[in-house]
Design a protein around this nucleic acid. Sequence first.
RNA 1: GCCCCCAUCGUCUAGCGGUAAGGACACCACUCUUUCAAGGUGGUGACAGGGGUUCGACUCCCCUUGGGGGCGCCA
Length: 439
Amino acid sequence: MTLDSIRVRFAPSPTGYLHVGGARTALFNWLFARQSGGKFLLRIEDTDRERSSDEHTQVIRDGLTWLGLDWDEDIVFQGAGIERHQGLADDLLAQGHAYEDDGAVRFRMPHEEIAWEDAVGGHISFQGSDIQDWIILRSDRTPTYNFTVVADDADMRISHVIRGADHISNTPKQIAVFRALGQEPPVFAHVPMIHGQDGRKLSKRHGATAVGDYQNLGILPQALRNFLALLGWNPKDEREVFADINELIQAFSLADVQRKSAIFDLAKLEWMNGQYLSQTPVDQLLPLVEPEMKRLGLDPASVPHDKLIKAIDINRERARTTMDIAERAAVRLDASFIKQDDEKAKNLIAKDPDGFYSSLEATHQLLSGLNHSAWEPGRLENELRGLAESLGLGPGKIFQPIRVAITGTTVSEGIHILLDVVGREESLARIKSVLDGRT
RNA sequence: GCCCCCAUCGUCUAGCGGUAAGGACACCACUCUUUCAAGGUGGUGACAGGGGUUCGACUCCCCUUGGGGGCGCCA
């Protein structure tokens, strides 16, 4: 087979969302095609009219596009081939490969061994006699899935069928049809399934299972793509983060795809997303964070642009999702986004209320004495250090109350940076408000 | 019930007859620091069980157990 005759396809049914398992299957197909210089085709399995719709198809296209998986040639809609499918079924009927049964057309399974060399799973073998004759044309003349798949894969000259392992037991049926049709079956590659934390097939009850869910969570497409590639495949060296997609394309190999199903680990995805986040410059992050801020209820256009940029940049390295960044930025830009229920913050106060408030009081006095020109990170740091020293306190005793007063949490960037980002008036107002609110 | 696939740390994995069983996430400790996070360093942690084959098995074979998938006029 010449390289340019390599043709693979991703064939989802348009059920309303793009499952991450499907997305990974698409990714493996795409990587294989791009690496070999072959074609990656998209076919929509829309034969089940009641469950299909144009919007559902659009969701799949959007998901693939978001992930950067571009397809070649026109999208094939399976439903469009119904007459050809019927004709093929009639041929099989005429040749004795199928027979009529209650008005439907049933395929006659040959009673012989049906085996293939799976590009992932190795040698796999079934006995045809273990598989019942099955319907290829319903009594209303509509073709069934396992039959249309073969007809379309043959028609599209698919060379490699890369799909989920849940199709393994369909494969002997499909091989038998290829043979009855006088066609050479393609190479099959069955990639393992993705499971949820409970070890079961990843489904809606596991929470986020659609590509769009992760998009909403604030995951970057490059990160999801990288994570998915590593679920069931590895490059045989210690590489984990592939900053350049071409590196991934070159490294990919079907032979190195795992045969064991994998459990989807959200923590690792978030870690990987954090890796990408800290590598992404602010100007590229801005268009992703802005919509998240709007969803939180803060209009990014209502705050000074340089302040917005600073608030995002400061939190880029610490955050794991763009949602994280949006939340942290919002807190720095608008006091109404400060959360009042942070356990660690409440504990800090409760542990030593007098120390907390007196330190904050001293801080307020000091800071309100600084004018605008003095309000810059270096100066702030010096002043606050000096204060701690003169009070005979560890610096943490001074800084942590400020952090809590300004962000509502015990976690943030360096305190002088934080004060600078939030600004003089706002910082003082937040500290004052905490002092006034003492109960 | 029948058929098929699978089995290394909690999770993702490397290993392809002789290794102190390696890496990553998570976790813990230490460090850095101004707190937290991030970063850095280190640590806890695995070959499901039983038979073979072999001088020698995580690696090969068989059985058991466990897990998954499939057995529709669904896709």
